[in-house]
Structures are given as structure tokens and as C-alpha cells.
């Protein structure tokens, strides 16, 4: 079983990918399931449109797709209501993008949304790796405040925050490190200093190709037990499917 922990579908300004094309790529590369998020306009402004679209895809392919909801914290109570609705309808996580949505990741503005995720017992994926708003230690601040929530650190904070990752893990063991965008040198560090129990494979499709990235991760972590954790078990646990 292979789960892609982070993919985008829809028609965005920067990212465009149809669910059918993603399914074709998944089939070609042996990816069983993918966690879907909306595209950038929907992350920023048109949250409901994005959530409804992702719900439609998940309902059409329940064995292949899991959906994460978006809600821009600047919408305040409307964002809380939107997230409650989306999770109630069957989406299974919250995706935050502090840069696109325009807030420092640890700002109080996002607390109400994390509290909704906590009540629903779903994970929170946070884009990280951007100086200032998307700094990984901001996610650590958030994760320490909500230790009961599993957070996914988007891109394992690529680009150059690799120095901070062991400290992030030291102080927030409820963070998993998602692999998309990141590089072998940094996986070497994460594997050695944090461990494969905390790594989660993601593609950030359509940004990257499965057929290029998956062999690299397998080459770096040749132990089947490590691969099982990175490609499946850790994300399945985050989704509450495994203990």
C-alpha cells in the first residue's frame, strides 16, 4: 500500500491537474491512494468551492482518494463554519498555507481552525519552508500548543531550513515530515537524526513526478520496513486508520 500524502487537483493559476490524470499517474507508479487538496485560488479565497470539489472527487473514488479541507483563517467564524462543514461531510484533514493565506503560522488567528481539527481528530498539513510566515519553528510553536493534533510539515521545510529540523522534532514530536520538494541530502539528515517513523511520502502533484521521486526515496531507504513507514504506515496512522 502506498499513500501520497499531498497532491493538488483542480485548475489553479500555478497548479492544474485533473483527478483522472492523477489516477493515471498513480496507477502507472503503483500509488494506491492520494490525499487531495484544492488548488491555490481555493486555498486563498474560494475555500468552499475547493472543498466541494475535493469532496466530489473523494466520493467518486473513495478507495483511491482522501480529501483535506482548506479554510483561510482571515475569514474568521466563516472559516470555522466552512471547516466544520467540510469535515462533517467527509474530508479528513486541514491544509494550511501560511504564505498564500497571509498569516504567520503560529498566529492566534489560526487557533480556532486547529481546535476544529482537534475536535474532529484529523491531522493538519502546513506548508513550510518559507522565511517568516512559513518558518518551521512557527509550526513547532503551534504543534506544542496542540500536542493532541498530528501536524504534517509540508516539504519538510525545503528550502534551507534543514538546520532546524532536528530541533523541530525534539520539541514537537507530533510533527511528521512530508517529503515533497525536498532533496536526498536533507532526507539523509532527517533519516539519521529524526528517523523514518516521522517521514511521510508526498508528491505535491503536479509539481513533481512519481517516477522520479519514488525511486530516489527507495534508494535512500532500502530497508522494506523503512519504506513501509514512509510510503504507508505513518500517513495511515495520521489518518487514524492504524494505531
Amino acid at each position: 500500500m502506498i499513500i501520497d500524502a499531498h497532491a493538488h487537483v483542480g485548475q489553479g493559476r500555478f497548479k492544474s491537474l485533473s483527478p483522472d490524470e492523477l489516477l493515471r499517474q498513480m496507477d502507472t507508479n503503483g500509488v494506491d491512494r492520494a490525499v487531495l487538496c484544492p488548488v491555490e485560488e481555493q486555498i486563498v479565497a474560494f475555500n468552499h468551492e475547493g472543498n466541494a470539489y475535493i469532496l466530489e472527487q473523494v466520493r467518486g473514488h473513495p478507495a483511491r482518494f482522501v480529501g483535506f479541507a482548506v479554510a483561510n483563517p482571515w475569514f474568521g467564524q466563516a472559516a470555522v463554519r466552512e471547516l466544520e462543514w467540510a469535515l462533517g461531510e467527509g474530508l479528513r484533514g486541514l491544509k494550511l498555507h501560511a504564505v498564500y493565506q497571509g498569516f504567520p503560522m503560529n498566529n492566534t488567528i489560526v487557533y480556532p481552525l486547529i481546535e476544529v481539527a482537534a475536535r474532529h481528530k484529523v491531522p493538519v498539513y502546513a506548508h513550510c519552508g518559507s522565511a517568516h510566515f512559513g518558518e518551521p519553528l512557527r509550526l513547532v510553536e503551534l504543534a506544542r500548543r496542540y500536542p493532541e493534533v498530528t501536524f504534517l510539515m509540508g516539504h519538510s521545510s525545503f528550502s534551507d531550513f534543514w538546520n532546524d529540523l532536528p530541533r523541530c522534532h525534539q520539541f514537537a514530536p507530533n510533527i511528521l515530515f512530508e517529503t515533497s520538494r525536498n532533496t536526498p541530502g536533507n532526507f539523509q539528515q532527517i533519516g539519521k537524526e529524526i528517523g523514518t517513523d516521522f517521514m511521510v511520502f508526498g508528491s505535491n502533484a503536479p509539481e513533481h513526478y512519481y517516477h522520479v521521486d519514488m525511486p530516489m526515496l527507495r534508494a535512500m531507504f532500502p530497508d522494506p520496513a523503512d519504506q513501509e513507514k514512509i510510503f504507508h504506515r505513518n500517513m495511515a496512522r495520521a489518518l487514524g486508520e492504524l494505531t
Partner: peptide, 19 residues
């Protein structure tokens, strides 16, 4: 950026460029 890190650093970027 390879040469001193894991060999996949080189092969991955080569594969990405060839893709």
C-alpha cells in the same frame, strides 16, 4: 549539489533533468 552527500543526490537531479 552532489559529490559529498548521498549518491542519490546526483542520480535524482540527473533523472529530473532528463525528465
Amino acid at each position: 549539489d552532489g559529490g559529498s552527500f548521498h549518491p542519490a543526490t546526483v542520480t535524482w537531479y540527473l533523472a529530473r533533468t532528463q525528465a
